[in-house]
Design a protein around this nucleic acid. Structure first.
Lengths: 231, 231
DNA sequence: TCGGACACGTGACCC
DNA sequence: TGGGTCACGTGTCCG
């Protein structure tokens, strides 16, 4: 005999709400309810007795119908809201039309990280001449693998005319060439970020590059300039 | 009599699969299947006869059990993937711990737009001294509402020493003050973006501001400088 | 046929 | 208590 028959819960209106969704609790356990259906427990791979949709006694059936209707409609609105945001993300990310939700999110994460990095690099390098004086010198390239040994120096201080030409003279005295320079002034302050390398650095090997010009030498030079022009 | 009883579909194993989810078709219509359950149609607000989970005849029940199990597990993995991305987004966006999925996505969209704008502004203003010469002058503020009438001028050309001091002299002759300046040099090229305003501009009204110094005057000045130093 | 992606309705949970 | 969010399992479509 392979047929099942049973009686369902009764309602005054005679309607049956046949839920079937499994009703697993938020923390993972199954909810215990009082009645009468078989449902697949995917964790155990078995069919188990599961709860039906059980409106409390004393609540009218139509009340439950409208509640259920409101519920599912609210859920539908929620889904629509989320999916709308997914769509706007889809045409915000360059090539992400017709892209999977998961991969779209991954792409968004990548773009966010990238944009955040470049944005703060831009701010760091140029945008804000801060109110606090600052001299910073650090190696950029290591001189290995044929890469030139680059030094990045940033200077933030009050702006004084002639500072830049003096800086250039000082760098010439150190036989350094400016590979790249960025400068910003705002409200009497200036921030200057330069990338310097030894002239004809291609003929060096890495030992010479790292020994003959130390970052501390450049650092002292910049500090001296800084002191002079802050007087 | 308010009880229902019926016989379910039969399987050789004697197992019953009780689906209950409504099974609406992707394009909105309901799928027609062959059997025996009442389900809430939220669009009509009625209870309608709905499909049961119907494995085709001739397919063994355990085969369906494992298929269903695989299905729900795959869906769970998919959800986990998406939610994992949601979590990384949550701690990528500054204050978005414990934030709603929808509002989180909205926040992400806002940050993406913001970051994208600032990133391209940074590139536009400073980062790339392009290979093509360029002179551009445009009004920044409109001089209304007490805001000073600001003019943004950008100049991209070969770098020549002394260009900046000449530029300053030219601006002084026009009685303009540099509110903000950004300059970048790279490989013998330079890009210079300045924001200028009329000295003591606060005493102006908007008509004077817009008439006494036109953007074209500044444009001509910059072009002249450009011509001189490109010689 | 199989698996991935999606929308759906529902139970649990929180305020 | 309602209203809202979330996770779940399922039906459906598609490659």
């Amino acid at each position: 005999m392979d047929q099942f028959s049973w009686s369902s819960n009764s309602y005054s209106s005679g309607f049956l709400i046949n839920s079937g969704c499994q009703g697993k609790t938020r923390n993972g356990s199954f909810s215990s309810s009082s009645s009468s259906s078989l449902v697949l427990d995917t964790e155990r791979g078995e069919l188990v007795e599961a709860a039906m949709n059980l409106p409390r006694k004393g609540v009218s059936a139509e009340r439950n119908v409208v509640a259920l209707k409101n519920h599912s409609e609210a859920e539908r609105r929620r889904r629509a809201r989320i999916n709308g945001h997914f769509d706007t993300l889809r045409d915000l990310v360059p090539g992400a039309k017709k892209m999977d939700k998961a991969t779209l999110l991954a792409e968004v994460i990548g773009h966010m990280r990238e944009l955040k990095k470049t944005a703060e690099e831009a701010c760091d390098g140029i945008l804000i001449p801060t109110d606090t004086d600052e001299v910073r010198v650090e190696k950029q390239g290591d001189g290995m693998d044929g890469n030139p040994c680059l030094i990045r120096a940033s200077l933030c201080c009050d702006y004084k005319p002639g500072l830049l030409s003096d800086l250039r003279r000082a760098l010439d005295a150190l036989h350094l060439i400016i590979v790249k320079a960025e400068m910003a002034t705002c409200e009497g302050r200036m921030k200057n970020v330069i990338l310097v390398a030894k002239a004809s650095c291609k003929e060096w090997d890495s030992k010479e590059a790292s020994s003959s010009i130390s970052t501390s030498t450049l650092d002292q030079t910049l500090r001296l300039l800084d002191m002079i022009y802050l007087l």
